[in-house]
């Protein structure tokens, strides 16, 4: 089976073709550099994405505060993460790095605050 991907590790965006047989990667072609090979293998075995969104802020100068996952989370868990984050809230004041949810869905990633808000 052949699978086509676009490497997003740099702006070149090489089109990559991967040969898979019984879940095993036989070859990776089309990449210009080594990073493309790694990207393709990771993408097929365990695709992950950085997640950024906002969380409800109580008593802040703004109604929400931006957050990110401290490391990429599995791609297929993004919407589940969103649901948990949208149910959560945090009290002002908050600062960059404050943890809102620890180890979200057992992914090893924390949801951390990415802006300061000293509250009203």
């Amino acid at each position: 089976m052949k699978k086509n991907l676009i490497c997003v590790s740099c702006p070149l965006g090489c089109p990559i073709e991967v040969e898979i047989e019984n879940g095993e990667i036989l070859s990776v072609t089309g990449n210009t550099c080594k990073r493309g090979d790694k990207y393709a293998r990771d993408e097929l075995t365990n695709p992950v994405r950085s997640l950024t969104t906002t969380v409800k802020l109580i008593g802040g100068t703004l109604p929400v505060v931006p957050v990110k996952s401290s490391k990429p989370v599995p791609k297929d868990k993004m919407f589940q993460c969103m649901k948990l984050i949208n149910e959560a809230s945090i009290n002002a004041s908050v600062k960059i790095g404050d943890v809102v949810i620890k180890d979200i869905l057992g992914s090893g990633a924390d949801i951390v605050v990415t802006n300061n808000d000293n509250g009203k």
């Binding site: 950085s50 950024t52 931006p66 990110k68 960059i96 990415t114 802006n115």
Partner: peptide, 19 residues
């Protein structure tokens, strides 16, 4: 701009806009 991808050149790490 709350997504990440800022600062790769200048700080050598991927930050969000507010960071």
């Amino acid at each position: 701009c709350i997504h990440t991808g800022f600062g790769l050149h200048y700080f050598g790490e991927e930050l969000s806009g507010p960071e």
